[in-house]
Simulated scan of single mutants.
Amino acid sequence: MAAAGEEPGDPSPEDFVYGEEDFVLQAAGWEGDPGSAPSRFDRALLEGWSDRMERGLFRYRLGPLPTRVLPGPLGLLAQLNEQRGAARRPPQPVLSLRQPFDPAAFNFTRLRPAELLLRLRRAGPGPAAPDPVWVAINASPLDRGHVLLLPEPARGLPQALPAAGLRAGLEAVLLSAHPGFRLGFNGLAAGASVNHLHLHGFYLRRPLPLESAPARPLCPRRRLSLLTGVPAPAFLFFAAGPAALPALAGDVCRAAEHLRDRGLAYNVFATRGDPPAGGGGAAGRGLRVLLWPRQPRFGAEAGAGFGVAVCELAGFLPLPAAPLFRGITETQALRVIQESLLPEPQLLRLGGDLLRLLEG
């Protein structure tokens, strides 16, 4: 990343070299504050993030955010963030699922150097990556610690998820000791606001039902299941530990590419959670990775005052207005979320396609 615009005294990103010994296989309990039992990664991320907040590098100062669980069986979590709704950068227009990267549009090579927190580099055998994964502040944060993970930003890759980028993001989840550090990816026409490869990392201080809901097996050999009984049914992939991440990342990205070939958009979400059958207990938890196929949305988002991207599909609703936050019901929220989803028969047919794809 270029250092254009750097000012004297600006902080520099920290090299963060990690190995297998840094992975936290069993996260801490739900104390609420991501800094309550931090790993080395949590400390580096949160200290850098707080420093940039004090320096005024965000679009707004973030204070406590009102949060409530909507009454109803699905436990949707609503959070009021009026400043994000008003101050975030307008999304770039998306005209195609294969829209190329445009160097003339805003992209992450234009970030100020002080917005960069970390350069993630994995130690150990194998060829070194040509460029690290950068961790940058999200200038319009959802909550404390919301960052962007930028795989090889100098290459100018469009917003289509590669296996290497997903694997790096999943490893970042395992580097955190907080059970609520989540990873999200919004594809083109599925909520992505910038067509330059990036993933979101953020702390959410509450569990979500999709971490423990049981799933129906589709391809047990590839750990692929269908997760229902949640706000947005999804294809679920599961990794019991770090050794499974390369194969899992490859499978998820092959499935995502298949969706794009079929003219569908997609979102991806990763969180610590139970095995697909559910009820694994603390010792049996691993990483759940959810893949949502959806109808592409090329125009402005409609709906009841909020768009639908990876957070909303996961059951977390960052809302931009107090009346909406106070008054929205589970039924109203689900109606908006389900407008983006595929009919169940089409989802089941896709499950058969993915089964053949991954077993072939």
Rank of each mutant, 00 (worst) to 15 (best):
H258L: 15
L287A: 09
R260T: 15
G279F: 02
A282Y: 04
P275A: 11
G278H: 10
W292R: 08
L264Q: 02
P276C: 13
R294S: 12
G299A: 14
R262W: 01
V268Q: 01
Q295F: 05
R297D: 11
A270E: 03
P276G: 08
Q295Y: 04
Y266V: 05
P275C: 10
P275R: 10
L290D: 00
A265C: 12
V289Y: 05
L264I: 01
L290A: 01
A282H: 07
G286C: 08
P275K: 10
V289T: 14
P275V: 03
F269R: 01
V268C: 01
R288M: 02
D261M: 11
F269H: 13
P296L: 06
R272C: 09
G281T: 09
G273M: 11
G281S: 11
A277S: 14
P275G: 08
T271I: 08
V289F: 01
A265W: 02
R272H: 15
L287V: 12
R288F: 05
A265I: 00
G284S: 06
R288A: 02
G286Q: 06
R288I: 02
V289A: 05
F298H: 06
V268P: 10
G279N: 13
R294Y: 04
A282E: 15
V268G: 01
T271V: 14
G280L: 10
A270R: 02
A265P: 11
T271W: 04
G263A: 11
R260D: 09
A282C: 00
Q295A: 14
W292F: 15
N267I: 00
F298W: 07
G299E: 10
R297A: 13
A282T: 09
A277C: 06
H258W: 13
A265D: 03
V289N: 05
F298P: 05
A270I: 00
V268H: 02
R288K: 11
G279R: 09
V289S: 07
G263C: 13
L264V: 01
D274S: 07
F298V: 07
G273N: 08
G279S: 06
G286T: 06
R272Q: 14
P276I: 05
Y266Q: 10
G280V: 09
P275I: 06
R262I: 03
H258D: 05
Y266D: 05
R272W: 13
G284E: 07
G286S: 09
Y266P: 05
A277H: 09
G281R: 09
A283E: 15
L291W: 03
G280Y: 06
G273D: 09
F269I: 11
R297S: 13
T271P: 04
P293L: 00
G299K: 13
G299M: 12
R297I: 07
A265L: 00
A283R: 12
A277Q: 14
P293C: 06
A282W: 08
G299N: 07
P276K: 10
L291T: 01
R297N: 15
G263N: 07
D261G: 15
R262T: 08
P276W: 10
R285V: 08
R297M: 11
